[in-house]
Design a protein around this nucleic acid. Structure first.
Length: 482
RNA sequence: GUCCCCAUCGUCCAGAGGCCCAGGACGUGGCCCUUUCAAGGCCAAAACACGGGUUCGAAUCCCGUUGGGGACGCCA
């Protein structure tokens, strides 16, 4: 397919919104292919629709790709900058007889479309302008009448061997003479894409399968322009829980949303990769290098996949526990700082303690947000008490107060603040009271964290230190008295 | 309406003619461990859309039906 030359792929989003998870997945597969087979992964911003394109959106696409680590090769291509070539290509097609001028106005076309719709017929441009006499054509051009350039679709059938679908064929009679250049001289999508892909030397066009119906038109353009065809690969769509194409109404669909909700880019990539691809077998949790290693076109799925945020969270939990703590730290630290739990300097000053904390907390977390939530009691003087935790751990306030008071007295006198002495002291307390250890631990957990979830109680005490632990208990005692 | 694509548990995947009365994961339910848990362990329920072929044999190949999705713009 690439004849020994380096494959060249591209991701070509239009900057009209945010980087969508579907777009991110398309970018990912292009990137994986390039990385796996030693190719180039290029980025092209399709900003030919000036009315809808924004710089802000372009920025969001860069940010999203950078966060995910899907870095592109070479400089970014802005489609709008290629206008002269697009026009030249349109002119070439006009001159070599592949296209013709059409004077039908948008209003006329809309009218005809409406008629076709009411008659329940499929509308297709009837080529009336292709039948204009030479004289009339010249007269109208000379009169300054506006016209578009339409591609003259030849007889026959257009097919290609898709990398994921095998052969796909369209009878040309079902393809209308599509517009390639607007009356204002700007190109239409299909022309701009083909012109740019040729110019960029793209050998593999991998994109969403909503572009399948554009493909025969583009193939016709490649041929008319005398350019070699790339290999096409049409990836399945991503749908929302209702089975429809994923869109804003399905909730968070912007990559940035996940970034800000404490997801790890590696987990996002892993999850996205599994939506429409599988390395075969039961393999699921993978690092990026493993994905590159295992990537293959054979594992690509034809069927649309439904985006399941719950599994994404689970996947993130897996990655949270799996990655080296040194890699996790830089992802969490900015959040710790912006949540005002600590300053950068404070974290640096007790880095070992901090890393141990992260290690303790990540086990029970699915997102970085979970880690931040659980981290609060280790940094803040005052904590909030989760009503659910209070209801469970301090079911009987009088008993809780009594137990906490005893616990406090005991802990104040533990000479060695490490897990073993702490454990034996607390267990001894339970035994002396004739109650289970849990009865002692439960109120203590709520006093220390205010949460229903926490690491093991002894590790937690050690991590908090004597001073903070005792202060927490004192505060709890105060609260319980009220 | 026309054209195109798709079709294995609720969801994501495995399965490329016999290894499958279909396997893994998420989620769900139960049990165990345990000081809690969104952690860990075990178990359970849960699918080859339907109908025809082809074949000794089909989840796997072919055809049709049904269902779902996508595209039909001087948007991309």
């Amino acid at each position: 397919m690439t004849n020994g030359t380096k494959p060249r792929l591209r991701f070509a989003p239009s900057p009209t919104g945010y980087l969508h998870v579907g777009g991110a997945r398309t970018a990912l597969f292009n990137w994986l292919y390039a990385r796996k087979f030693g190719g180039e992964f290029l980025l092209r911003i399709e900003d030919t629709d000036k009315a809808r394109s924004t710089d802000e959106s372009t920025r969001a696409i860069f940010d999203g790709l950078e966060w995910l680590g899907l870095l592109w090769d070479g400089v970014v291509v802005y489609q709008g900058a290629n206008l002269p070539r697009h026009q030249a290509d349109a002119r070439r097609l006009l001159e070599n007889g592949s296209a013709y001028r059409c004077f039908c106005t948008p209003a006329e076309l809309e009218e005809r479309r409406r008629e076709a719709a009411t008659g329940k017929e499929a509308f297709k441009y009837d080529r009336r302008c292709d039948r204009l006499s030479r004289e009339e054509l010249e007269r109208r051009v000379a009169a300054g009448e506006l016209y578009v350039i339409r591609f003259r679709v030849p007889e026959g059938e257009t097919d290609w061997n898709d990398m994921v679908h095998e052969r796909i064929a369209f009878p040309n009679k079902d393809i209308e003479d599509f517009v390639i250049l607007r009356s204002d001289g700007t190109p239409i999508y299909n022309l701009a894409v083909v012109s740019d892909d040729i110019a960029m030397g793209i050998t593999i066009v991998m994109r969403g399968d909503d572009h399948i119906s554009n493909t025969p038109k583009q193939i016709l353009l490649y041929r008319a322009l005398g350019a070699p065809l790339p290999t096409f690969a049409h990836l399945p769509m991503i749908h929302g829980l209702d089975g429809k194409k994923l869109s804003k109404r399905h909730g968070a669909t912007a990559v940035g949303d996940y970034q800000h909700h404490g997801l790890l880019p590696g987990a996002m990539l892993n999850f996205l990769a599994l939506l429409g691809w599988s390395p075969g077998g039961d393999r699921e949790v993978m690092t990026v290098p493993e994905m590159i290693e295992l990537f293959s076109v054979d594992g690509l799925q034809k069927k649309a996949a439904i985006f399941d945020p719950v599994k994404l969270d689970w996947m993130n939990g897996q990655h949270l526990s799996m990655i080296p703590i040194e890699d996790l730290e830089p992802r969490v630290t900015p959040e710790i700082i912006s949540a005002r739990l600590a300053t950068e300097d404070e974290l640096v000053a007790r880095r070992d303690w901090y890393l141990r904390l992260l290690d303790l907390l990540r086990v029970r977390s699915r997102t970085i947000d979970d880690i931040i939530r659980q981290a609060k009691p280790y940094f803040l003087d005052d904590i909030d008490y989760d009503p659910a935790a209070v209801a469970k751990g301090w079911k009987d306030p009088a008993e809780a107060r009594d137990l906490l008071q005893s616990t406090r007295d005991l802990l104040a006198n533990v000479s060695d603040w490490t897990t073993e002495p702490l454990e034996s002291a607390l267990r001894a307390l339970a035994e002396s009271r004739g109650i289970t250890a849990g009865r002692v631990f439960q109120p203590l957990r709520v006093a220390l964290t205010g949460l229903t979830v926490s690491p093991g109680i002894f590790e937690m005490l050690v991590q908090m230190g004597r001073e903070l632990s005792l202060m927490r208990i004192d505060k709890a005692l105060l609260v319980l008295r009220a």
